[in-house]
Amino acid sequence: MRESRERNSRLASRSVQAVFLIVLVVLWYLATTRWGVSSILLPNPVLVVQQLWDILKSGEFLGDLRVTLTELGIAFAISATTGVTIGYLISRSHYRIRVFEPLFAGIYSVPIILFLPLYVLFFGLGPASKIALGATISFFPITLNTIAGFGYVDRILVVAARSMGASDVQLFRYVLLPAALPIILTGMRMGFTVALLSIIGSETIASLAGLGHRIVHLAEGMEMPRMFAYIAFVVVIALILNTIVSALEARGKRHV
């Protein structure tokens, strides 16, 4: 009885979602065909889908996608290695945690996107400035979570392992790492998400190539249907990447 009611309510909320999305698309369609909304402000959805299909079929997105993903990969590799290393070194003493953690947390609360003009000045318009910005922004959540992960392991566990004669390596492998890894992985996911956002953002603001650059290029050329298609493409890519990273995080947590 109760189960069927729950199933009904889930069905009802699913249908509300579906209706909501359908109404949105229909309104969009009517606005462009019937109510005379300028096609520069809002292109016809049918045209957008055609353009999206054309982009996917012709494979012209590959170049920009490669640029953005390379930047993201390098930035994340830099911030993950430096973040975890520095975080681990800091977490080894209470004194260092108290010195450095508030410092990093303070810098983290500044919107680091502000430094983009500086990075462009240092590293130029090419991929280097995006990599540097992405690495800087994702460094902080990874470092802070590594500090939190390694720094606040229950002392009783450490003492118990030591008193049973665990070596340094064993202590690290069987006590510290399992305790810290879930928190570090969460930090890495957060770092990955903000790195992706900041890289696309800085491509939008000042760049020579990449997905963000392509969208701006189309916007400036007033090629609205194609621009909408690219926006949809980038949103889907971002959702896919974030889903993959969340899945990896969950997997990593299970395997400790």
């Binding site: 520069i40 992706l196 696309i200 939008t204 997905l211 969208i215 916007a219």
Partner: peptide
């Protein structure tokens, strides 16, 4: 879903509107 989408991609649209 909306929260999870990178809103920077639609920054040019905001300028347009």
């Amino acid at each position: 879903l909306l929260y999870g989408t990178p809103q920077v991609t639609i920054l040019p649209l905001f300028i347009l509107y």
